[in-house]
Design a protein around this nucleic acid. Structure first.
Lengths: 139, 139
DNA sequence: TCAACAGTTTAGAATGGTTTTAATGTAATT
DNA sequence: AATTACATTAAAACCATTCTAAACTGTTGA
């Protein structure tokens, strides 16, 4: 449980003005028991349900991108027509249920260490992400 | 080097009528020395340059999706606003150079086996894809 | 060989997620 | 309180992708 005051200083410390909208989005995203995955559309709906407020779509996009840039959110690479975000910023991997278009977290221990042998001069590894696609098992 | 005749029978055997457009796209995609990555836009440009033909955008989309469904192409999961495809259908993974927006193939031996410990009832694993994001190494 | 059918191509319109615009509003600073 | 820089907003624009419906073409069987 994080208080509004804490969100305000977190935002200020990040160089983001603590506006009503950003605080609301913080509460929606970072005050949950568990981390979760969402699309922008999901987030808009959650805000509409949870508060009776309405935050403009553009602001939701702006805020999510700002939070991503600050490292408070991670975008999950999926070849889908919309972006998925994750409030779990720890290093971890995903199942993607193709039929249901749903993401499921994998723990580090579910996958085991991944050792990348190849290097590219002048580049360093920023992240290593495994996406396991699931389909229906008909048998 | 694959002949036109071979592409025709490959298409027929897949239940796809060997049309002029599909044969052309086969030649562009599968007659290269090396496998490569492309977007739909890339492919349209290649076709325009290589032949003086013009294939309708809708047909390019249709054909790429048909080929993907038949397993002759693979879509690569990246959190981008457009789809990337790969003519390398062997089991392999990717580097993604964030700065240059370029994909680089990793060989199986560059990554080693990945062992997924978790299972979901009624679902089976369709694919396991590793995306290694690279950033500039400033030091 | 030819007719008939089913599958394919096409240009252009529609769709839908995301970004831009430019006007209005608000937090921070003086 | 005035100023300034940053934020929010609705609506328009953007752009990759999909859809539509009419024209076209490969295939089949008589």
């Amino acid at each position: 449980m994080t208080t509004t005051v804490e969100f305000i200083s977190k935002l200020r410390n990040s160089g983001l003005r603590p506006t009503k909208q950003r605080i609301k989005i913080c509460e929606v995203l970072f005050n949950k028991e568990k981390t979760f995955h969402f699309t922008i559309n999901d987030l808009v709906k959650i805000i509409e349900n949870e508060a009776n407020e309405k935050i403009s779509l553009a602001t939701v996009y702006n805020t999510v991108h700002a939070f991503e840039k600050k490292g408070y959110l991670k975008e999950i690479p999926i070849d889908s027509n919309q972006s998925y975000f994750d409030t779990n910023i720890a290093d971890h991997h995903h199942f993607y249920d193709i039929a249901e278009k749903k993401l499921i977290d994998l723990k580090q221990t579910d996958v085991g260490p991944i050792n990348i042998q190849k290097t590219i001069p002048g580049k360093k590894i920023k992240s290593v992400e495994v996406l396991v696609k699931l389909e229906t098992d008909n048998q």
